[in-house]
Computed example of a mutant assay.
Amino acid sequence: MAAKHRRERRFQRQFDALERLIPPLRGPMSTLRRDSWFPIRFPLALLLIAGGLLSFLPFLGIWMLPLGMLLLAVDLPMLRGPISALVIRARHKARRLTRHWRTRQ
Protein backbone atom coordinates (compact mmCIF):
# COMPACT_ATOMS: atom_id res chain seq x y z
CA MET A 1 0.00 0.00 0.00
CA ALA A 2 2.80 2.43 0.86
CA ALA A 3 4.60 1.68 -2.41
CA LYS A 4 1.43 2.44 -4.38
CA HIS A 5 1.02 5.75 -2.57
CA ARG A 6 4.69 6.57 -3.15
CA ARG A 7 4.36 5.86 -6.90
CA GLU A 8 1.28 8.08 -7.08
CA ARG A 9 3.07 10.98 -5.34
CA ARG A 10 6.08 10.53 -7.65
CA PHE A 11 3.81 10.63 -10.69
CA GLN A 12 2.10 13.82 -9.47
CA ARG A 13 5.50 15.42 -8.78
CA GLN A 14 6.50 14.79 -12.40
CA PHE A 15 3.42 16.64 -13.62
CA ASP A 16 4.26 19.51 -11.27
CA ALA A 17 7.87 19.57 -12.53
CA LEU A 18 6.73 19.67 -16.16
CA GLU A 19 4.34 22.50 -15.35
CA ARG A 20 7.21 24.48 -13.81
CA LEU A 21 9.46 23.67 -16.77
CA ILE A 22 6.84 24.74 -19.35
CA PRO A 23 4.58 27.35 -17.65
CA PRO A 24 2.12 27.75 -20.58
CA LEU A 25 1.13 24.09 -20.08
CA ARG A 26 0.13 24.63 -16.44
CA GLY A 27 -3.52 25.41 -17.18
CA PRO A 28 -4.20 22.73 -19.79
CA MET A 29 -2.34 20.03 -17.86
CA SER A 30 -4.16 20.66 -14.61
CA THR A 31 -7.50 20.76 -16.44
CA LEU A 32 -6.84 17.52 -18.31
CA ARG A 33 -5.90 15.71 -15.08
CA ARG A 34 -9.36 16.24 -13.58
CA ASP A 35 -11.51 13.10 -13.41
CA SER A 36 -14.35 14.79 -15.28
CA TRP A 37 -12.11 15.12 -18.35
CA PHE A 38 -11.72 11.35 -18.85
CA PRO A 39 -13.99 11.26 -21.95
CA ILE A 40 -11.67 13.76 -23.63
CA ARG A 41 -8.34 12.77 -22.09
CA PHE A 42 -8.39 9.07 -22.99
CA PRO A 43 -9.14 9.46 -26.74
CA LEU A 44 -6.73 12.41 -26.90
CA ALA A 45 -3.98 10.25 -25.38
CA LEU A 46 -4.61 7.52 -27.94
CA LEU A 47 -4.59 10.04 -30.80
CA LEU A 48 -1.30 11.54 -29.59
CA ILE A 49 0.28 8.09 -29.36
CA ALA A 50 -0.93 7.21 -32.87
CA GLY A 51 0.39 10.55 -34.17
CA GLY A 52 3.74 9.87 -32.52
CA LEU A 53 3.95 6.51 -34.25
CA LEU A 54 3.25 8.25 -37.58
CA SER A 55 5.96 10.85 -36.99
CA PHE A 56 7.32 10.49 -40.50
CA LEU A 57 4.28 12.45 -41.76
CA PRO A 58 4.28 16.28 -41.82
CA PHE A 59 3.15 18.01 -38.58
CA LEU A 60 3.01 14.75 -36.67
CA GLY A 61 6.08 14.20 -34.61
CA ILE A 62 7.75 12.03 -32.05
CA TRP A 63 6.90 14.72 -29.45
CA MET A 64 3.33 13.39 -29.49
CA LEU A 65 4.28 9.94 -28.19
CA PRO A 66 5.53 10.90 -24.70
CA LEU A 67 2.72 13.39 -24.24
CA GLY A 68 0.16 10.73 -25.13
CA MET A 69 1.78 8.21 -22.79
CA LEU A 70 1.76 10.77 -19.98
CA LEU A 71 -1.96 11.42 -20.46
CA LEU A 72 -2.68 7.70 -20.72
CA ALA A 73 -0.86 7.10 -17.42
CA VAL A 74 -3.38 9.39 -15.70
CA ASP A 75 -6.05 6.75 -16.39
CA LEU A 76 -3.95 3.58 -16.21
CA PRO A 77 -2.21 3.31 -12.84
CA MET A 78 0.06 0.49 -14.04
CA LEU A 79 1.80 2.98 -16.37
CA ARG A 80 2.48 5.60 -13.70
CA GLY A 81 5.70 4.07 -12.39
CA PRO A 82 7.38 3.53 -15.77
CA ILE A 83 6.19 6.88 -17.15
CA SER A 84 7.43 8.70 -14.04
CA ALA A 85 10.83 7.06 -14.46
CA LEU A 86 10.97 8.08 -18.13
CA VAL A 87 10.02 11.68 -17.32
CA ILE A 88 12.72 11.82 -14.64
CA ARG A 89 15.35 10.46 -17.04
CA ALA A 90 14.30 12.87 -19.77
CA ARG A 91 14.46 15.85 -17.41
CA HIS A 92 17.94 14.85 -16.19
CA LYS A 93 19.16 14.32 -19.75
CA ALA A 94 17.78 17.71 -20.82
CA ARG A 95 19.45 19.38 -17.83
CA ARG A 96 22.82 17.77 -18.69
CA LEU A 97 22.53 18.76 -22.36
CA THR A 98 21.63 22.33 -21.38
CA ARG A 99 24.64 22.54 -19.04
CA HIS A 100 26.93 21.10 -21.71
CA TRP A 101 25.60 23.51 -24.30
CA ARG A 102 26.08 26.50 -21.99
CA THR A 103 29.66 25.56 -21.12
CA ARG A 104 30.58 25.27 -24.80
CA GLN A 105 29.55 28.86 -25.50
Results as ranks from 00 to 15, higher is better:
Leu72Val: 04
Pro23His: 04
Leu53Asn: 09
Ala94Tyr: 06
Val74Trp: 10
Arg7His: 14
Phe15Val: 02
Ala17Phe: 11
Ala3Gly: 05
Gly68Tyr: 03
Arg10Gln: 11
Trp101Thr: 10
Arg34His: 13
Pro43Ala: 06
Val74Met: 15
Pro43Lys: 07
Phe11His: 14
Arg104Ser: 07
Ile40Tyr: 01
Phe59Arg: 07
Leu25Cys: 12
Arg41Val: 01
Pro58Tyr: 12
Leu86Thr: 02
Phe11Cys: 09
Leu70Asp: 00
Gly68Thr: 08
Met64Asp: 10
Leu72Thr: 03
Ala50Trp: 12
Arg10Tyr: 02
Arg41Glu: 00
Pro28Gly: 11
Leu72His: 08
Ile62Gly: 09
Met78Asp: 08
Leu32Ser: 05
Leu71Lys: 07
Ala3Cys: 03
Pro23Ala: 04
Leu18Lys: 01
Gly81Gln: 13
Phe59Leu: 14
Arg104Cys: 04
Met69Ala: 15
Leu97Asp: 13
Lys93Ile: 09
Ile22Met: 12
Phe56Tyr: 08
Thr31Ile: 14
His92Ile: 10
Thr98Glu: 08
Leu57Cys: 03
Ala2Phe: 09
Ser84Phe: 05
Leu53Val: 14
His100Arg: 14
Ile49Ala: 11
Leu72Asp: 02
Arg33Glu: 03
Ala3Phe: 07
Pro82Thr: 10
Asp75Arg: 05
Phe56Ser: 10
Arg6Asn: 08
Thr103Ala: 15
Leu60Lys: 05
Gln12Thr: 01
Arg80Met: 08
Phe38Tyr: 14
Arg95Ile: 04
Arg102Glu: 06
Ser30Pro: 00
Arg102Trp: 06
Phe15Glu: 00
Leu65Asp: 02
Arg89Cys: 02
Met1Leu: 07
Pro23Gly: 04
Asp75Phe: 00
Phe56Pro: 01
Phe59Asn: 03
His92Thr: 09
Pro43Trp: 05
